[in-house]
Simulated assay, not measured.
Amino acid sequence: MAKIFRVSARTALSSVVEPIARALLRAGVSPNAVTVAGTAGVLVGALGFAARGHLLIALVLVVVFALTDFLDGTMARMKGGSTRFGAFLDSSMDRVADAGIFGGVAYYLATEGDRWGMVAALLCLAVGQIVSYVKARAEGLGMTCNVGIAERPERLLSVGVGGLLTIIGLEWALPAALWILAGLSVITVGQRIAHVYKQAQAQA
């Protein structure tokens, strides 16, 4: 279901993103520059606004700049495909952005006196990095690892929905979303390890 949703979302975004991508390429902007700019924007939203409790502004900025992850990929395809460095940079900047988002949320919850919410945010940060590492390590060994119920889009959507519900007055929503996400992320790590184990056994 999650994969079907992502495919539908990508199809809907294509009609908006592709003209922008063409315009940026004509202006001489590189996909790598868009990747870095998008990450910088996410960090401004997360650390400059979410950490200080300005959740609505933070949510808008993070959503807008997170979409550059789709824009830079579209630009790369239009140029004939992503380079090895471009793929490396994109993955690295995703990790930086995720750290900024969950770090900013953890700081905000700590200042609000919600220690358990802060713990949940830090767990999401730590386990989310492990989710990404497991995939990268598997692919580095020549195996696939595109499985799991809490991949990056689901992780960002979860914290975004929790933040939105908190903005409209449900103060418990963000910590609750983080705890659910932390649990799903742990399950995802297990799913990916099991998936790689089956491949390794088949290749043995």
Results as ranks from 00 to 15, higher is better:
Phe5Pro: 00
Ala9Thr: 04
Leu13Asn: 00
Ser15Asp: 11
Glu18Gly: 01
Pro19Leu: 01
Arg22Ala: 02
Arg22Gln: 08
Arg22Val: 02
Ala23Tyr: 08
Arg26Gly: 08
Arg26Tyr: 11
Ala27Leu: 15
Ala27Gln: 11
Ala27Met: 14
Gly28Ala: 11
Val29Asn: 07
Ser30Asn: 07
Val34Ser: 05
Thr35Ala: 07
Val36Ile: 14
Thr39Lys: 05
Val42Ile: 15
Leu43Arg: 01
Leu47Lys: 11
Gly48Trp: 14
Gly53His: 09
Ile57Leu: 15
Ile57Gln: 08
Val60Ser: 06
Phe65Thr: 14
Ala66Leu: 08
Phe70Glu: 05
Met75Asp: 01
Ala76Tyr: 09
Met78Asn: 02
Lys79Ala: 12
Ser82Glu: 12
Gly103Cys: 10
Gly104Leu: 07
Tyr108Ile: 00
Tyr108Arg: 13
Ala110Glu: 06
Thr111Ser: 15
Asp114Asn: 14
Asp114Ser: 11
Trp116Cys: 04
Val119Gln: 02
Val119Leu: 11
Val119Asp: 01
Ala120Gly: 10
Leu123Cys: 10
Leu125Pro: 00
Tyr133Met: 09
Val134Leu: 13
Arg137Ser: 15
Met143His: 12
Asn146Ser: 10
Asn146Gly: 08
Gly148Trp: 00
Gly148Asp: 00
Ile149Cys: 09
Glu151Arg: 03
Gly160Met: 06
Ile167Cys: 05
Ile167Tyr: 10
Ala173Thr: 00
Leu174Met: 13
Ala176Ile: 02
Ala176Gly: 02
Ile180Ala: 12
Ile180Gln: 03
Gly183Val: 06
Val189Ile: 13
Ala194Ile: 02
Ala194Thr: 01
Val196Glu: 07
Val196Ile: 09
Tyr197Ala: 14
Gln203Leu: 13
